[in-house]
């Protein structure tokens, strides 16, 4: 295998795998979105059971603070879910007319024997550029997805703390 072929194969493979990873990231947004829905349901339950007329009591204050922190974490999670797909631009290899144009240019400049290696280099360059752009975009998207998941888990923890304190408010 020549260096041209090696470059071509290597970058084509990693470009395709990064493109597949894009779809995997997009598909995995469903988990934080479902958790956010559950978090909203928890907040509703907590708010319905909370007695706001006794806000001067420490337990009530604790529940209110936990609920507020939970809401903030949940809003942060929603923001990051939106950012997973926000302004993502796909990069695709050149269309066929550009390849034919490149083939003709290589043939004219360097002769027939240089056409295949030249085209391979051009395709390897295209795959390399697209791969790097996908890699950067996917890294940012994966970061947003992970932050969304962590924030929604945090909001659920805050709501759980609120629920834990609720019986003490009822007793008081």
């Amino acid at each position: 295998m020549s260096p041209n072929e090696l470059r071509f194969e290597h970058f084509r493979e990693i470009y395709l795998s990064e493109r597949t990873r894009r779809e995997a990231i997009r598909g995995s947004i469903g988990t934080p979105v479902a958790a956010i829905s559950f978090s909203v349901f928890s907040l509703g339950n907590l708010a319905a059971r909370f007695d706001a007329t006794r806000l001067e009591e420490p337990v009530s204050l604790f529940i209110a603070a936990a609920a507020c922190a939970g809401v903030l974490a949940m809003l942060g999670a929603v923001y990051h879910v939106v950012m997973v797909e926000w302004l993502f631009i796909h990069h695709e290899p050149p269309p066929l007319p550009r390849l034919v144009e490149a083939e003709n240019a290589i043939r004219t400049e360097r002769g027939e024997e240089a056409v295949v290696p030249g085209l391979m280099d051009m395709m390897a360059a295209s795959y390399a550029i697209a791969f790097e752009q996908y890699l950067w975009g996917n890294t940012m998207s994966a970061r947003s997805r992970t932050r969304a998941l962590r924030l929604v888990l945090l909001s659920l923890v805050f709501f759980a703390l609120g629920f834990l304190a609720l019986p003490f408010q009822k007793m008081g």
């Binding site: 631009i89 990069h91 290899p93 050149p94 030249g118 550029i129 697209a130």
Partner: peptide
Amino acid sequence: EEANMQRLLHLPVRPSLTLADE
């Protein structure tokens, strides 16, 4: 990026990628 690749690999034609904005 395309210009850099053209210089690096001594390509006679720039690799012209297509951008897709969803």
